[in-house]
Computed example of a mutant assay.
Amino acid sequence: MKLILVYGLSCLIFSFLIIQYRVEFFIYKKIKKIYENVSLLSTSSLDPEEMTLTDIATLSKEVEKFAEGKKLEIEALQMRDSYRKEFMGNISHELKTPLFTVQGYIETLLDGAMKDKKVRKKYLNRASKGVERLIYIVKDLDMITKLETGELGLNKENFDIVEVIQNVFDLLEMKAAKKNINLEFGTPYKPVMVFADKEKIQQVLTNLIVNSIKYGKNDGTTEVLIENLSKNKVIIRVSDNGEGIQPVHIPRLFERFYRVDKSGSRKEGGSGLGLSIVKHLIEAHKERIFVESTFGMGSEFSFTLKKAKQS
């Protein structure tokens, strides 16, 4: 009798162990299959020798982590898609406007207006301006693309940034005079030597000062100031007392074709890529650009440059 009890108990324990092993193995296989199906989950956290029912919590955590990652990825893709659609709409508008203008004037000339010498000259001049605008847009887009891909190299040299600023003032003096804007140099006129691509930095300053004039108020002021930032860096500030920028627009100022004033800014001309080019040129120098603005009071754009090494 005692022997039968021992035998029965042994069978029960053995059966329990076999069943437990089979159940654990079954659960492991099922969970591992889920891990393998969801390719981003790692099966390294699963151990077939230690697999128990409580390991479903591991799967739960991994799936939650995976789902959160996918959610963030989807949100990022949605933002990119939204940006892509907006960009395509903007570039379509920027190209369509001058193209239709040129087409309109040429068709009018072909329909008979060409016989009138005065009308012909006026319409050809206007068509020429439309073509120039298209050229600006294409050239600026080409420059940004080359900067992004690293095809447009920098020709760095030591030069006097004060002299470059004065050159830009001379070039834009007449443009500023149309709005009676005073171009001021807030630094004592003495050489400040920097190490950068002279031509590209002149373009940066030109774009920033043109913007300052464009959005500046009549009888206003645009000031350029150079300050020491550190032992080997200077910061150049371009400030105005114009209309300023609302905070909602500041994070997107350097996007291609992004315009704060959707209607009026196009009347001022340009490609709509000026600030985007500025950002790319400064970043190509491994430098930083900043913007501060108070709506209704004015704006300040500033960027850093490396000082020239003392010989």
Rank of each mutant, 00 (worst) to 15 (best):
Q103M: 14
S42P: 09
E62C: 02
L134E: 08
I161Q: 08
Q203P: 01
T221Y: 05
Q310T: 05
M143T: 09
P191Q: 15
L3Y: 14
R126Q: 12
M174S: 13
K2Q: 14
K217T: 10
F26D: 01
L17Q: 07
G216D: 06
T54Q: 05
N232W: 02
H93V: 04
L229G: 04
S299D: 04
F25L: 10
I137C: 04
E50R: 15
K233C: 01
I201W: 03
L46W: 06
I27R: 09
S230Y: 10
G150M: 09
S263H: 11
S293K: 05
S44H: 12
K190H: 11
S60C: 01
K198V: 07
S212C: 02
I13E: 07
S128V: 13
N90G: 04
L59F: 10
I235S: 02
I282S: 05
L141I: 11
V260C: 06
T108V: 07
L253S: 03
R80A: 12
V168Q: 00
S212R: 00
F295L: 11
E255C: 00
E151D: 15
A308N: 00
P98S: 00
F25C: 08
K139Q: 03
I19M: 06
A284H: 12
K32H: 14
K71V: 00
K29C: 07
L253E: 02
D197T: 06
L172R: 01
N218Y: 10
K198M: 12
N241A: 03
L273H: 07
L152T: 03
P251A: 02
S265L: 09
M1A: 13
F301R: 00
E199N: 11
E36I: 07
F26Q: 04
P188T: 01
F257D: 01
G296D: 06
K129C: 04
E199A: 13
D160I: 08
K231V: 14
I165C: 06
A76Q: 15
E24I: 01
L77A: 13
I56C: 07
D140C: 00
I19H: 04
L183C: 11
A308H: 02
G69C: 11
E268F: 15
I289V: 15
T222H: 03
F100I: 12
L273C: 08
Y21E: 12
Y189R: 10
S128P: 06
T108C: 03
F254A: 03
K85T: 11
L229Q: 12
G130E: 03
E199W: 05
H93K: 15
A284D: 12
K217H: 02
V192D: 04
I106W: 01
N218M: 10
P188K: 08
D261Y: 05
G298K: 02
S311C: 01
